[in-house]
């Protein structure tokens, strides 16, 4: 089910008021509104089986985009075509092929075991009994929650609850799954399990995933391609690694000399490269091309006791990107 988004915009009418009781009184009798442009002219094509990361700061428009793609919201203008369906017409055949998991909302009933909600979903999505049993067994095993199926949802940990939400979302074998902050609040082990699961499921079934997350490790692990939204506008659509390189092409080098080098030996290098020398360790953060030259010259001076090269933390890179995104994309 390819997804075609063309010049999609969504405006909300928000009412504004000043803080305090007097502001509340004034706005009660004389309400002032302003238009909030949540999305402006977004165009996007997503192919079958892709895992697309949707990135942006809080309030950038990521969730609005997801809600438009599943038909929860009607756009102010623009079109979306998902396999010849217009999402906001909410046709049954369309709704049977999509699914949404929202990290901060539950579709499972709090007071009863998840298995009861799964049974209800079987009826709602008209899943054949044998197919339902097979899929439930597979998903439960993959996510390792066999023993939790008959425990009330309110008694589950956050990670277990999220796994159950994912099972509920996948039971009907949707072609497109939208994950909105699926790992929010989870510990690192649970985050990693959910990432592994999504990766496996995508490879196994060719399901298209659209993921929003503030955890860059989710995006790094799952998405080759990202779509970046800033203040409702499309800012970048392409390879995630290329974006990272564009924002911060530097890498970290740590070169350990076998003995403390004499300062004269490194004087000429100091004029050309920026680095820090402490005891036997030389540390530098440089673009790839400079690093290659530096390492070549260091090898000429001395053979190393050890050498390590690291990418800069992707979270830091994206933080500096969102601080001033236009600067990196000119």
């Amino acid at each position: 089910m390819p997804i075609r988004v063309n010049a999609l915009s969504k405006h909300f009418r928000l009412f504004k008021r000043e803080a305090g009781l007097s502001g509340a009184f004034r706005s009660f009798f004389n309400r002032k509104y302003e238009d909030f442009h949540a999305l402006r002219e977004i165009s996007l094509d997503i192919e079958d089986g892709e895992i697309l990361g949707i990135l942006g700061e809080n309030g950038a428009g990521k969730t609005t985009l997801i809600k438009l793609l599943v038909g929860l919201l009607h756009p102010s203008s623009g079109q979306v075509d998902i396999n010849s369906f217009t999402p906001w017409n909410r046709k049954t055949a369309f709704l049977k092929q999509i699914s949404v998991v929202m990290g901060q909302k539950n579709q499972l009933w709090w007071d009863i075991p998840a298995s009861e909600s799964f049974l209800l979903n079987q009826k709602i999505y008209e899943i054949e009994k044998t197919e339902y049993d097979r899929r439930l067994k597979e998903l439960v095993e993959l996510l390792a929650v066999e023993k939790k199926l008959n425990v009330q949802v309110r008694r589950l940990s956050l990670g277990e609850r999220m796994k159950m939400e994912i099972i509920a979302a996948l039971l009907h074998n949707p072609k497109i799954v939208l994950l909105d902050e699926p790992t929010i609040g989870l510990d690192v082990v649970s985050q990693s399990k959910i990432r592994e699961f999504v990766k496996y499921y995508n490879q196994q079934y060719g399901t298209t995933f659209l993921i929003t997350s503030h955890y860059m490790h989710d995006i790094e692990a799952l998405c080759k391609r990202v779509f970046v939204i800033h203040a409702g506008k499309s800012l970048y659509d392409g390879n995630f690694k290329e974006l990272i390189n564009r924002v911060n092409p530097r890498r970290k080098l740590q070169f350990e000399f076998s003995e403390i080098p004499n300062s004269g030996m490194l004087d000429s290098l100091g004029n050309e490269f920026e680095f820090e020398l402490k005891d036997t360790f030389l540390r530098a953060e440089l673009p790839d091309s400079d690093l290659t030259r530096l390492v070549t010259q260091l090898f000429k001076l001395s053979s190393p006791a050890s050498i390590t090269l690291e990418d800069l933390p992707v979270e830091d890179t994206m933080r500096s990107f969102f601080a001033n995104p236009e600067q990196f994309l000119q």
Binding site: L72, R90, T92, A93, L95, I98, V100, Q107, Y125
Partner: peptide
Amino acid sequence: RGDLDFFLLKPVHS
């Protein structure tokens, strides 16, 4: 609270 989302996403007459 936005819980209505889950009603509207089901392939059933909303």
